[in-house]
Design a protein around this nucleic acid. Structure first.
Lengths: 345, 345
DNA sequence: TGGCATAAAGTTAACGGTAACGCAACGCTC
DNA sequence: GAGCGTTGCGTTACCGTTAACTTTATGCCA
């Protein structure tokens, strides 16, 4: 029998060599037709492109990255993917990078420091062109690795602290202060703080610090804190609000770590018969898409995520092209809605 | 002068060869100490590990992928990153894959077919171990590329159509039918559909089809459709609802393509003085985190995103290890809340 | 003690590209 | 028409790792 078990449709993937052979040129010429088309005769270029099209050639970027100087990968390390917290940053960042041929490699630490080290190591093993990472507070070992990697590191979202290289974000302490100032201006006096404040969520802690400090400066009684380690959700907000009001019925304003938590707080207050904003004011942080659609519409702080994503992409490209590191503060906005609009103030 | 411009801190990144030289063994032995530790003498292994620790060695997976058979990359192609639509699928998927040492490479098509082709090509150029992609309806060229790649392809979210390899999701037509059935059971008769239905969002179209078909079967008047091509948002829902009610005040139920759109619809109806659920019932799809927190709480369909993410990860691993392709239907749930709870029915 | 399986390490050759260099062929100038 | 720069392509040498062999040391049994 002559018939053998031949290629069962699993043809070997075409390489530059396949193309070269078919066209009758050297491998390097094919490579050049891709990287620097105008160094190849138009007619030859056409034939090469036709062959690529025909064989469905897809370049092997692992090989390209190993051989060349760049790897075209940008590592993106976030602390959470739930709820729109960072999704639109990633969205904008990804789209902007794509235009420059950079691919996003994603990692999610879930606010876990050990995980963060593991993930950063893992991402570094792909020899990325740059890394974008949430926050400026990282375990020492992570900082050491990132610094030693000698690639551009863009820290996003938070700018308050020791920046490794370049940062794009804002000062969360000021956000907390602004929340307090707003509540005070609206006539609230007994402020409480509710939310998920995980050990590694330094941003949440900073906002809380800012809130407390501003309240203290204004001579208000100490801010009551009722927090949990688990992730934020309406259910969490609801539970924490019930517990808080039961123990401290004198509270007249609640600042929430996130809109999602505030949604649950609003529901709890409604159940308890507390009127918002007249009995209790509620302010939050994040500008979730539903913030203006709950009852009453939620006063919150809107960080400009898309701008952060876009500026991060620009910073990455700039740094790759040799620009100096720098820190960019991105504006945020306190969106005053009905949940803090006390009528009898 | 003897001093030259020496390495200014930019030490070359350590390679297996650096470690090998320092320990005094061959490169391959170091490689083995990593990949198959028990083929190396414990004492030697210890010295190798120590050297790696000391030099802060990070393996080069580009080289590993090029040389070896696997590349440890899983391409994940989604159609959107905004609002929690797919975020928690990615979250779960990423975490599950990480445990097996697989890294997620992310791409977002933004419901653009040209973009989808470009992105799939781009991802394939990293020679991924598998690809997970949203939907079963792709441009022919994309299907051709994916099939030719001979790697496991997991299509997520939708299962209704021609599956390339393996799918994990549900039938969106049935979701639409269930929405109609629910409205009918609750006593609504004149149903309208509102939402963002982009040309490439076949899932939205399927849900709409299911809704229309079920309404027709029940002998209801034809479903009024008022849609837009732009992305869904509360603002869009609000505008569409205003326009719809103005032209068709007889409408007594609105099915929305997504919760986010429904939030805007609820706001518009409130402005118009229409009572929900008594004058008009509202049902949506997605189970956004705020769905239970708006007024009235929104009846919606809750797909089990985390389960889809988890099952997708499992399917990827199974397929990599040689299991047969298969399609898994993931249950969803119609969460009946107040927005469709007509009192006088 | 010789023979032979086994364990532990070394040797060599890819993997698929890129970059530096080399070398013809061509057109231009004087 | 000799000299010279330019254009267009081929040669060669890696990039860092893995995989398939080969070699050497070790133990075991007859």
């Amino acid at each position: 029998m002559e018939t053998e078990i031949t290629d069962r449709g699993a043809r070997p993937v075409p390489t530059l060599a396949s193309i070269a052979e078919r066209v009758g040129v050297s491998v390097n010429t094919v490579s050049r037709a891709l990287r620097a088309p105008n160094t190849v005769r138009p007619e030859l270029r056409r034939r090469i492109n036709a062959a690529m099209e025909e064989l469905n050639y897809v370049p092997n970027r692992l090989a390209g990255g190993l051989s060349g100087t760049r790897s075209d990968i940008v590592g993106v390390v976030v602390t959470s993917l739930y709820y729109s917290e960072f999704a639109s940053i990633i969205d904008t960042l990804q789209s902007a990078l794509l235009e420059s041929g950079l691919q996003v490699m994603l990692a999610n630490t879930r606010y876990n420091a050990d995980q963060e080290l593991k993930l950063v190591r893992s991402i570094l093993s792909w020899r990325p062109a740059a890394i974008a990472i949430i926050g400026v507070d990282h375990p020492p070992k992570v900082v050491e690795l990132l610094k030693a990697s000698a690639i551009p590191i863009i820290e996003m979202w938070d700018t308050d602290g020791e920046v490794i290289d370049t940062a794009v974000g804002f000062d969360h302490t000021r956000v907390g202060a602004a929340q307090a100032d707003h509540l005070i201006a609206r006539g609230y006096r007994r402020i409480a703080f509710i939310g998920s404040v995980r050990e590694n969520d330094r941003r949440a802690q900073k906002r809380l610090n800012g809130l407390e400090a501003a309240a203290a400066v204004a001579g208000l009684p100490q801010v009551l804190k009722h927090t949990a380690q688990q992730g934020g959700s309406p259910a969490l907000g609801e539970r924490l609000a019930f517990e808080l009001i039961e123990g401290h019925p004198e509270i007249d304003a609640i600042a929430c770590n996130s809109d999602v938590v505030a949604f649950g707080v609003l529901r709890a207050l409604k159940t308890l018969g507390k009127r918002v904003p007249d009995d209790i004011g509620v302010i939050a942080f994040g500008d979730n898409e539903a913030a203006g659609c709950v009852t009453p519409p939620l006063t919150t702080v809107r960080p400009d995520r898309e701008r952060i994503g876009k500026l991060t992409a620009e910073a990455i490209l700039a740094r790759i092209n040799g620009a100096e590191p720098c820190t960019t503060i991105v504006e945020w906005e306190l969106v005053a809605r009905e949940s803090t609009h006390k009528k009898n103030a």
